[in-house]
Each structure stands twice: as structure tokens, then as C-alpha cells.
Design a protein around this nucleic acid. Sequence first.
DNA 1: AAAGACAAAAATGAATGCAATTTATGCCGA
DNA 2: TCGGCATAAATTGCATTCATTTTTGTCTTT
Lengths: 241, 241
Amino acid sequence: MSMVLDTQNGSDVTAEPAGVIPAEAARAPATLHDELLAALRDYIVEGNLDDGARIPERLLCDRFGISRTPLREALKVLAAEGLIELLPNRGARVRALSADDLRELFDVMGGLEALAGRLACERVSDADVAEIERVHHDMYRFYLRREMHDYFRCNQDIHRMIVEAAGNAVLSATYASFAGRIRRVRYSANLATDRDRWGEAMREHEAILDALRRRAGSELSDLLFQHLRNKRKAAQAEAKG
Amino acid sequence: MSMVLDTQNGSDVTAEPAGVIPAEAARAPATLHDELLAALRDYIVEGNLDDGARIPERLLCDRFGISRTPLREALKVLAAEGLIELLPNRGARVRALSADDLRELFDVMGGLEALAGRLACERVSDADVAEIERVHHDMYRFYLRREMHDYFRCNQDIHRMIVEAAGNAVLSATYASFAGRIRRVRYSANLATDRDRWGEAMREHEAILDALRRRAGSELSDLLFQHLRNKRKAAQAEAKG
DNA sequence: AAAGACAAAAATGAATGCAATTTATGCCGA
DNA sequence: TCGGCATAAATTGCATTCATTTTTGTCTTT
């Protein structure tokens, strides 16, 4: 249970309500603000608010049990991240992603993954490659069995592992930020229904893994970018169909 | 005059103290917060605050003539951008970039430029290429005359033009954000003293322009990444020497 | 004299209050 | 009945206030 949800206003902090985890339990003595920020981000990413709908501050304050000041601070940060937009004197609304926005975001994700692949080839260990191969083979099994959900999870894991293998914290953070932004539509951007695309994606992953094994950075970079490109195109076709 | 400077609290509308930071003229009277955010960002990027030094909120409030609430909102955003760090209960300080931070930032910039080159090849017009070539030739003249400052300006322009040619607003914004983060050290990361590196950089730019002319996206992508890599290495050597 | 302890002062985190802008409601006239 | 306008309610932006934590300064003790 999160502090954000349980903490009440400062006037009566004498007895904590039942069910509250002692503040000390929070391993990181994170400030209330940071916790709220994370909670609010999840809340939005998970789609609890409608696209473009108004978000009265008061409502969120009540929901999270805090006053407007820390909430507004969090909103400013989320606006800077591009998750919501703040209209002067007219409140916050969830930023609806246009087709162009999606195209741009996918391409930037592709660029970041391309970079990750390039960097990973410079420093990835054989053990790391083996680990990625293991997940790849798991994924292949799920592909054969048409177990979409598990396949998808492995897929995400592989991409994340490549990004981590790059050993660049700035890259990881940036990648995570963009991943959050498109998460709302990512599931719909799925290749669940398109079997041809699914098989193609598997072949692309084979090539990606092969390039990684050979530490062919530049080649892997191209492959990852194209892989994301194709994923985007599939998603767009899906959206239209 | 700017809203930031003119707005005073109700009780004390006396003349402003000398030495107040002149914020930008209110071209967009959008919101006080945005204006403050931009002003504060510039203020930090331009190095008006020492690395790692404490930044008392009160000082900044006085300097910008506002109360703590909007200031703190801006600080949260700047912290999210990575420009400053916020220690719980211990205020904000300018984030000092370690050697590792710089390595990571340069590599991410390289990845973004590589992406920009790839995208630019897909959609750049002949006129745009011609425009870039023009600046390139200007730059070459400055190189021959050893006019470092103008050379540097052209160099920056070319990189910016390639990013713009990619036609991806998300990429442009991301690139600009990272550029701001390393701007504090960018000038020191200069090739002013290293003539060999300077000539090498010119040759790299020739190759970059050639790849762009041929719309060789993948090749241009590699060239741009390596160009940034080399720039980083030169900067690191500079810093050590 | 140096180190530690205690108290005062300052700074931060969060809540509340107030003025200004926006949105909603009701009234009037066509 | 519908549209325009005036007023009221709600919402936002910012300032101020309060409580807690950190820092500073002084005094005591060894």
C-alpha cells in the first residue's frame, strides 16, 4: 500500500489508520512528491483517465489524499514528460496521441534501440548473449504454440535486455520514458491478429540475435531500427483495419 | 517587460532590486510558470550557479521576483530533465556531470543524430541538402582561416539542420533537451587546440554530407554516430590534458 | 582547546487562502 | 423553443502559512 494513498493531511497524524504500512517500510525515504509522481504516472499510463478529458485537480487530490501543491508539482513534471498537457487556466488533460505522434515516437524508440544494439555489441558479455538467447528460445516456443501473451512478454524482455546490455543509464532512462508514453497504445499495436507479421517478427529476431552474437554493431543497429519500423507499420495497419 | 519581473505580491510593490534577472520579453504571455521555467533553465545552463552548490529557494525567488510555489514547480521539472538534482529536505543543486555521465550523454546524442541522419535521408529535399551544403562550405572557409568561433557555429548549425530535416518533432525536442544538458561542458569539449582533430572533423563532415547527398541512410547513421564518438574522445582527451 | 550537546535560526515540504480566469447556470428576449 | 447575455459557481495560479527537518551557533564538559 502506498503512502500516497494512505497519508492524510498533516492536521491529524497522531494515529495512523489501520492497514497503513509504517513510513519506515519505504526502503527509500522517498519524498511524498516522488511517490506521488510515480503513482500518478502509473495511474495515467494504465488508462484510468480518458483521453483528452479534463482532470480536475480536486478529484486527484481526493483520490490520492494529498493537497494541491504536491499534485500540481507532479502534473508539471508529467507535462514535461509529454504524458499530459497543461492548458493555461484550463487544467490538465491526458495527451491524446495522434497518428503522427505515434509515428514519431516509434521512430525515436527505433533510434534508441538501434543505439542500444550498437553499444551492446561493444561491451556485451558472452553470458549476457547466452541469457538473451535463452529468452529468445522461450519466445520461439511460445510462438510455435501461439501463446501470444507469453510471447509478448519475452519479446519485451529481449528488447529491454538489449537496452540494458548497452550499459548506458541515460539511454535506459530515456528508453523507459518513451516506452511509458506509448504503453497506452502498445497493446493495441500488437501483432496478435496478423500471423504473417508474427512470423516475420520472429525471423527479424533471429537476425537480431545473430548480429548480436557476431558483435556486428552497425548491422544490429540497422536491424533493430527496421524491426521497430515494421512493428510500427503493423500497428498502423492494425489501427486502420 | 516580463510577467515574471513585473508581478509582485500585493503587500509590497516597491521598486525591484537591482540585479534582477531580466527574463525574456513576454512574446508568449502564456503562463508565468512556463516563462519562469525557461528563464531558470537558461540561468542554470549559462552557468550562473556553481556545480554542486546549494541553491537556496529564497535566493532564486528574490532574483526572479516570485514566490516559492511556481519556483518549486520549475525545480521539479528541471530535476526531471536531469539538469539539477533535488535532495530530500536538502534543496536543489546543480548536477555535476561525471566522466561517465558525459560518456553516456555523448553516446545518446550520437544515437539521436544517427537516427536523425537515417530519417533525413528518407525525406530531405534537394533544396534542404543544398542549404546544408552551403553552410558546410561556409564552415570550410572558416576552417581554412582557422576562425574557430564561426566554424563552431556552422558546425552546430549543420547538426541542427540534419536533426530538423528528420521531420520528427519528438526527436527534435529530445535532442534539444540533451544538447542543453551538455552545453555547460560543450565549449570545453572543443577542438580548438587540437588541429589534427579539427582536420579529421572536417573530413568526417565531408563524408557525412556525401552520404546525405546519396540518401544513404544507414551509412549516414554510422558516420554521424562515429563522428560524435570521435568528438567525445577528443573532448575527453582535452579534459585530461 | 577540542568535541559533543543543546538551542536557535533557516530552509524545505506540504496545506491553506485569496485573487483571477474559466465554466456552468439561469434569465431574458426573439 | 432557442440563442445571447449576465451572474454565480467552480477551477486554476500564485502567495502565504504551518510543521518538520536541517543547519548553524553557542555553551558545556572533558
